[in-house]
Each structure stands twice: as C-alpha cells, then as structure tokens.
Design a protein around this nucleic acid. Sequence first.
DNA 1: ACAAATTTAGACACTCTTGTCCAATTCGTC
DNA 2: GACGAATTGGACAAGAGTGTCTAAATTTGT
Lengths: 229, 229
Amino acid sequence: MKLGVSPDIIPPRGHEAKRVSIMDAASEVFCRESFAGANIDMIAAEAGVSRQTIYNHHGDKEKLFVAIVRDLTERCNAGIFATISTFPDQPNDLEADLIAFAVRMNRNCICNRDGKFLRKLIQTEGERYPELFAEWREQGPGRTWPAIAARFARLAHAGFLDIDDPDVAARQFLALANAELQTTFMLGGTPDEDEVLQSATHGVRTFLRAFGKRQPAANASKQGALANA
Amino acid sequence: MKLGVSPDIIPPRGHEAKRVSIMDAASEVFCRESFAGANIDMIAAEAGVSRQTIYNHHGDKEKLFVAIVRDLTERCNAGIFATISTFPDQPNDLEADLIAFAVRMNRNCICNRDGKFLRKLIQTEGERYPELFAEWREQGPGRTWPAIAARFARLAHAGFLDIDDPDVAARQFLALANAELQTTFMLGGTPDEDEVLQSATHGVRTFLRAFGKRQPAANASKQGALANA
DNA sequence: ACAAATTTAGACACTCTTGTCCAATTCGTC
DNA sequence: GACGAATTGGACAAGAGTGTCTAAATTTGT
C-alpha cells in the first residue's frame, strides 16, 4: 500500500475508525447527560472501545468535550452554508420555493443529529465555556445570519419581496419557520417530517403576507401556471 | 405551643425563611451547573444554610430538584396568565399596544429570573424527567398558548386583525417577538431592556404587516365605530 | 511471519459527593 | 430565663468517577 509517501504521519486505519466512533459516542452521551453527568466509562461502552483508548486519543474528559464541540460546530456550519447555497434566488413559485428552503434548513441543519446535539450542548454548557461558544457564535450565527440576509436582500432587489431591513427579515423568516417546533425543541425532541412541513408552510405564508409583493390577480394566474411544475 | 389559631401547621418564621432561601439557591445552582453538576454543599453555601438543613427540609437531592421545578412552573404560569390578562382587547393604538404586550411578556415571563431558570432546566433535564416536564407542558404551553390564541381570535373578531388560524397566529406572534433574542437565550444570557424592545417592535410590525387590516385612511373612522361594540 | 504500534482489561490511588448520625448551639416562644 | 424545636458543623461510611499504570492480546504494515 502507500509506499514511502507519509509513513509516520498518517495513523493506521483502525485508529481513525476508533476516533470517529469515540466522537460519535461522546456527542451522544455528553448531549444526553450533560458534561458533568457524562462519564468516560459510558462513552467507552457506547463507542465499543476501552476506557484507556479514549485517554490515549484525547487526554482527558474536558479536552474530549472541546473536541466534540469544535467538531459539531464545524459540521453544522458546513451544513448551513450548503443549505444556504440552495436558496431560491430565482424562484418559480416563491411560496413553494421558500417553504422547501425552510424545510431543508430545518431538516438538514436544525433537526438532524448534529444540529440537535450542538444546540443542546450550547444551551447546557454555554455559560461554563464562554470562549468555546463565543467561537461558535462568531462562526455560526455571526456568519450564517448575514448570509441569509444577503439572499433575502437580493430577492427583494429583484422585485420578489418588499423588505426594509434584510437582517431583521432573515431572523424573522427562521423564527417563523420554527414557530411551531419550539416546545418540541425545548424538551429535546425531534419533530417529524410532517410537523416540520406544517411549521414551514405556516411560517412562510405569514412571511409572505408581511413581505410579499401584493399582486392579487397575477397571483392566481401564476399559481395556475406553476401547478404543473 | 402556640395556642388556638393554627398551632402545629404553621412552622416557625425562620423555618420558612430558610426554606425560600434554599429554594432560591437551589434554582440558581441547578440552573447554572445542571442536576449532575450541582452539589448540595454549593447550594447550602449559596443559601447560607448548613447542608443538614437542606436534608431536613427536602430529603434528598432529587426531591429538592423536583420541588424546584414544580415551584418554578407554578410561578411562571401564574406570571404568564397575569400578563395575558393585560392583553389589549380594546386597543387604542394597535401597534403600540401589541408591542407593549410583547415587551411585558418577554420582560415578566421569559427574561426574568424564573423564566430563565425554568427554560434552562427544561432544556437541560427535560429528557431525563419526562413525567415532570410533561406536567409543565400541559400546564404551561398547553394552557397558555390557547389562552393567547383566544385573545387574538377576539381581536380578529372585533375587526382589528385578519387571522385565519388564531393558534398559528399566537405562536407566530411570540416567535416574532423573540426572533432577535434567540442567540442570547441559547447561551443563557439575559437580553437588556433595549434588545427586548427592539425585537418586540420589529416582531409586531411584521406581525401587523401580515395580519393587520389594511386601512390607510379608514383607520381612524373604523376604530371610532368599533369603540361602541 | 515479524516487529512496531495500538488496544485492552483490570487494578489502583485519589478525589469528590451523597446521605447519615450526633452533640453542641442557636432561635422562637412563653 | 427556660423550654422545645430547629439549625449547625463536623465526622463518617459508602459509592462513583477520574486518570494512571501495567502486562497481555490484538492489529497493522512490511
């Protein structure tokens, strides 16, 4: 196999497999039990790995925790930006396209495993690790909100929406899309596909009542024309 | 012993003082450290009470925790219903009145000490105590959301708003009022008066763009007409 | 198949926490 | 001031968790 190239830098295959297995189990357990409530034996058992291996890989409990949060932050941000790139810049059916976007956002970034875990860890441990979560704040909301706002601004500029302040509109768009999922989120649950769709649909309709261009007649014809698509 | 009135039921004064002092400290510590991370000595120290006194009053850590959650749930619900009773059923200036209502809701029920603590405990321990928090869910959102929805329905019926589904509108109203406070909430912070006002103002404006009757000129006359009804 | 690296199970010392017990003290009331 | 109830501080056993160490077993690359 790889001859000569990078012998001592790349660790053996199994090594990496254990590593991700530990990360997976650790997110799960830290999320479920909180930092103080989690214990290394639990994580080791869930990862199918001996306790010592965890110490070999990560040094101690706190370093492991930090690694988890960094990892989740990175993956979640990547997911959010990937989803933002599917924003309907040239919508066919504005309502349907925005609903689909809201559903994607929820399904891929907020309700999925990583999103749920990161959210819970931020809520639970945010006050105890200010620097760590400040990092999240800057890299996450600090960059994603403006990115979404920019898309709405473009949509408004193109004449599809009537928006004064795109930053406010972006925040309200997401708040509306999640409005009916709050209680479920609170208790750590995962809304099913139907609830996500419901919430997104109601949210986007209200959003468009507030920010959509009013075209009563054009509306009907447009919807008729788009029914095929 | 104290003769007559209520001899053995009411404990001595100091007793009750200690009790509330313990409850206060325990909410603080449980909220800050999570159940697993909190320890009785911390609570005792913060309450200015000996550890033994806590055991005398509450038996054990878990019973204390349950007592805290019940207490917070009750007080928060009381606060929410009190605030709902200030809903502007006969608004003078709809926008201003709704903004003021949203600010009251946030200030008195969501951003205050009890609200913050209960929210954090639900987020952090909700999955571990399903029955306990199911209780909250029924008594809290299960009763407060419909109550708010009923107020919006009445407002719509009186001709001030154009609402299809009052339940949806109520949830969206609160989501919009909080839209700009989410990140702060996430990290356990308390938004200041200004941020609350900002978020409420933007939220209510959007809410009214979506659900307000459009009456640029008719506004004054209509309100006059309805004042009798 | 061999050698190096990694993983494993178990024992271990250490610390922290819970919950109990008790004697001394303080507090509230008469 | 005296009485009873409540509080206090401290000691205590029992249990759980962290992080280290070891020797044996396993995996990996050559």
